[in-house]
Design a protein around this nucleic acid. Structure first.
Lengths: 191, 191
DNA sequence: TCACAAAACTAACACCATTAGTTATAATAC
DNA sequence: GTATTATAACTAATGGTGTTAGTTTTGTGA
């Protein structure tokens, strides 16, 4: 008895194909071949390719989320933030297929996607707690940091950084710079 | 005599199709239809679809570059930086097709792409001149700001921002925060 | 007017996602 | 154990994609 094809197996193999051959290499025929079935048979398990891509993105997001939460264990404040940035970049570098899965998710407005994205952001919120910002400023600052993290990843993945200067150091100094300013905002806040 | 089909016309119509129907709507048959010729005839003018996409990305980049340089006219320092960020976001919002053209450029390592991307960064370098940072710090800080700008656009385009809090204000406050820190770095630099 | 190069054409190939309709398989009820 | 039934495989077909080869038309310059 050959082993049963489950949704989990389909997702796992899809991610595998993407990892090894790139995001666009994942076609239904390629996937079916790996599963040992004919292409149309896939429709007994998935609704269509876009839906599959959506689920792959969710898987990628949760994988990323896990990596980022792991990064802050035993760390706080600036050190935690730096580690998040570094983990983020290195995760995407070692999983360029998942990077594509996330940046090219068919429906970014999907509730599952939004939920897991929010969860990831919570990590940053917790790091900023000690600064005791007011609610609105807290949102602004989390957004700024989140944007910066995304941006570093984006530019790094597009090869937009000149190799002469270490990107890790750029991230560290950018974070330090931002946090110096943040302390100022925090002080003004208490008056 | 019907008008001659030039590379410029092909690019213009391609951008038009992308603008009105989205990035994936640009197919060779769609393009050929707009030009009033059959699909294979396109190969008398372009080498293939990916190459065309590459050239569209370059066009999009230069369009963006122009918008950003316009944004700083008559402004400097913080005001200029804020205007760049705002222009960046609003440009992408009003040209989602060009956003896709840029973020999904087939070959980001292309020399033309790198060159025009570097040109855009020069704007930020000029803004930071008054801070008199040393060469390395200047690179770090430009990278941080560039990443933040990219990140805000990226998250905005993916609909990742909760609408309750104004993104414009988040950008302003993030920039202010970063620049406060930057001033500190600048002072330490002079010793 | 002739020659030639540019740019159009048709026909074909190999892929793609997807649907409809059918058959085989495995589990369930009797 | 046999009949029933749902699951999951199959084949065949449709209409789309990019691309290549080979051919014909068109316009220009000699």
């Amino acid at each position: 008895m050959r082993k049963k094809i489950t949704k989990k197996i389909i997702l796992d193999i899809s991610v595998e194909i993407i990892a090894e051959e790139g995001y666009d290499a994942l076609t239904l025929s390629r996937l079916a071949k790996s599963l040992g079935i004919r292409t149309p048979s896939l429709y007994n398990h998935i609704s269509n390719l876009n839906q599959l891509r959506q689920e792959i993105a969710i898987k990628a997001f949760s994988h990323l989320h896990e990596t980022l939460t792991d990064a802050v264990i035993g760390r706080s404040g600036e050190a935690a933030l730096k580690e998040i940035f570094h983990s983020y970049v290195s995760f995407m570098r070692s999983h360029p297929g998942l990077y594509a899965a996330i940046t090219r998710v068919p429906d970014p407005a999907d509730e599952h996607i939004k939920e897991i994205a929010d969860n990831s952001i919570d990590v940053i919120f917790r790091i900023l707690e000690p600064y005791q910002l007011n609610k609105k400023d807290e949102v602004h600052m989390v957004r700024g940091l989140r944007a910066m993290a995304h941006g570093f990843v984006f530019i790094d993945m597009q090869g937009g950084f000149n190799m002469d200067v270490d990107i890790k150091q750029s991230m560290n100094e950018s974070i330090e710079t931002f946090l110096i300013g943040l302390k100022e905002v925090s002080l003004n806040n208490k008056n």
